[in-house]
Write a protein that binds this DNA or RNA. Structure first.
Lengths: 197, 197
DNA sequence: TACCTGTTTTTACACTGTCAAGATATTTTC
DNA sequence: GAAAATATCTTGACAGTGTAAAAACAGGTA
């Protein structure tokens, strides 16, 4: 149906998001420009303006999609954990978190990195909240609801720290991140249980 | 002695670094441009070229200076810890780490944030290594040298994660970071000791 | 003096995000 | 169906960026 170059793209909004994700995967973040994304989508450099006011909002929407996928990934990881104890589920989520960061470093950078890049679109706010609540629920299953907030801060901090040090290549070379996540996971959970006593 | 506008600045390299640090403190990172720094130093926009090839190297040098200060700050914090046990010294360093990040968010962002911004100048590499070794020594005093690497990964990850979530305002509002660092510190040290058994 | 070397400015280029105005398609209304 | 209104996309422009090359200037040296 679509002619070779119809004036109206038909689904440009989604095409821009996909082009943006692809660009994020191919290029360093600094080179992902509005014009580059438009180029990849085959439209003029000002075409995104109508669908996303600014570059920040476009990236914000991409980050929001990333969070949606992130939540699903962690949920299935927890559900497929070998033993269905709270601790085992939590450790599985931590592993999945690191794998997600490694598999989609660009999206992860947008989602958790310095927020300069993307704007806080409503979708992004909601998706981020969902991710936090998922984590807090998992922690609450170990330490109880009262200590869930602080415990979630520990879990998120440590895994996020490991992942972001890893992505920024700021880990000393002798550290293998997958080995580290095993030990970090054990220690964090031990720390949680110690505090729950 | 210095005339109002001597053609040769005399100490432009250092003046640029200071102007850069000031700019980092005043403006969001995205607005800290080479030209802005040059403007603040009162020189033409191409003057930095000769002292620092590119913007990345200028920022890299600023980051390196940040690491130098960082190492000193953590060392004095450890030495002033109330009890001079390894655990108490480590907890003091973790608190100092968070305070440093809060006091100098821009420098911290350069030092630990996504590395896109600054180039890996030799000074930066060395200063970063020094910081890591300082941390690893502190952990080794708790868990022994064999487990120091993994333990340091845990400590660095968790504190860096907390600090960066904090700076990016990605912590849910009910969390006070100073309260969190107390609990996170306790849990991390408990986790270290549990793993050391 | 004249020359050489290190700094700084000037000028230029390609690129960016965003805006305003125009062109074109789709939808709505009559 | 025709006309008018609206949504979508393009063109062109502006101020800003990083970086490079060439020109202007200062200081030291012979």
């Amino acid at each position: 149906m679509a002619a070779l170059k119809p004036y109206h793209h038909g689904d440009l909004r989604d095409a821009l998001l996909q082009a943006g994700e692809q660009a994020l995967a191919d290029l360093p973040l600094a080179e992902v420009s509005l014009r580059e994304i438009a180029r990849r989508a085959g439209v003029s450099h000002a075409a995104p303006k109508h669908h996303f006011g600014t570059l920040g909002e476009l990236l914000g929407e991409i980050a929001a999609r990333g969070f949606d996928q992130f939540v699903k990934t962690l949920a299935t990881a927890a559900n497929q954990a070998p033993e269905q104890t709270p601790e085992s589920r939590m450790h599985a989520m931590m592993r999945a978190y690191l794998r997600f960061a490694e598999a989609q470093p660009a999206a992860y950078g947008l989602m958790f990195g310095r927020a300069n890049a993307c704007a806080m679109t409503p979708h992004l706010v909601a998706a981020k909240m969902a991710a936090w609540e998922q984590l807090e629920d998992g922690v609450a299953a170990i330490v109880g609801p009262l200590r869930a907030v602080a415990g979630a801060a520990l879990v998120w901090s440590s895994v996020h720290g490991l992942a972001s040090l890893r992505l920024d290549r700021r880990l000393p070379p002798q550290i293998d991140p997958h080995q580290a996540i095993e030990q970090v996971g054990r220690m964090v959970i031990a720390g949680l249980r110690a505090d729950a006593l």
